Amino acid sequence: MEIDKVMERIEDQSELIKLVEDFSYLFKEYEMGLLELKSDIEIIDLEWQAKYGYSPFEHVKTRIKSPLSLKDKLKRKGIDYSLESIQQNIFDIIGVRIVTTFEDDVYKIYDILQGRNDLRIKRVKDYIKNPKPSGYKSLHLIVETELVLSEGVKWVPAEIQIRTLAMDFFASTEHKLQYKYNTKKLSDSIRQELREVADVSSVLDRKMTEVRNTIMMD
């Protein structure tokens, strides 16, 4: 009996080691996928500058979820902490946020991404045309980027958010107010004020686009 227990512990430890190794390789794949996306964005930037004479990007931020953050998300969603569950249910381990100056450029970038052979767009949530109740606006894409490895081609999932500077300012400020200050539920009056700020941001986006278009016509 004692030998059986020892063998069980050895098997459990072997399974744990195998799980750690599998997760380590999985996150390396995500790192490689992020490198591919960064390369795509740099190419889009250079091509855009050649065509239009300016960069469409105010800034681009990227991140890969940490194992701890991933585990917290799985727990919140009631998803098993396993490779299979992650691959079937979690698509935002890689995150890319693209911030533009003009709202028109958001959709131009989206069109360019749609036309790439090394990128698949799997899902679109347009919070610009259909803002959230808070006033939050952004174009959210779930994509798969092509990863060419020695063992063959893999498609790595990622989330890309595209929005203007005004939208990004609102989203960042709303996040700080609601989460950074430990405010679980904002009052109705505060929500109304935030919605008014979002409306002002939308007016700013439209005005800046009008100014840009007027300059280009002169």
Rank of each mutant, 00 (worst) to 15 (best):
V106Q: 08
N117I: 07
I190T: 04
A198K: 00
V20F: 14
F102L: 08
L46F: 15
T100L: 02
T214I: 09
D80I: 03
I10G: 09
K185E: 06
S55D: 06
H175I: 09
E144Q: 14
T101S: 08
V200M: 13
S82M: 02
E42M: 12
R116T: 01
G53H: 04
L35S: 13
G115I: 07
V143D: 10
Q49D: 03
T62Y: 07
Q88M: 14
Q114S: 05
T101M: 09
E210V: 01
G33H: 01
V203L: 13
E47T: 11
I121R: 03
G115N: 14
S150W: 14
T100V: 00
M208P: 00
E151I: 12
I10M: 15
D4S: 10
S82E: 00
F23D: 03
K122Q: 06
Y81R: 10
E15C: 07
S69C: 00
L113Q: 05
D218N: 15
T62P: 01
R163A: 04
F57M: 05
V203I: 13
L194T: 08
V20M: 12
S189W: 13
V6E: 13
I93E: 10
L37D: 02
S24E: 13
K129E: 12
I93Y: 08
Q88A: 08
Q49K: 15
Y110T: 04
W155A: 10
N213C: 02
L68K: 10
V96T: 10
L177G: 12
I64V: 14
K122D: 05
S189F: 03
K180E: 15
K38Y: 06
H175V: 08
S138R: 01
K38M: 07
T101D: 03
S66V: 03
W48I: 00
V200F: 15
I17G: 09
Y110M: 11
R163Q: 06
H140M: 06
I142A: 12
Q88D: 11
M217Y: 03
K75I: 08
E2C: 02
E174F: 14
H175F: 15
I94P: 04
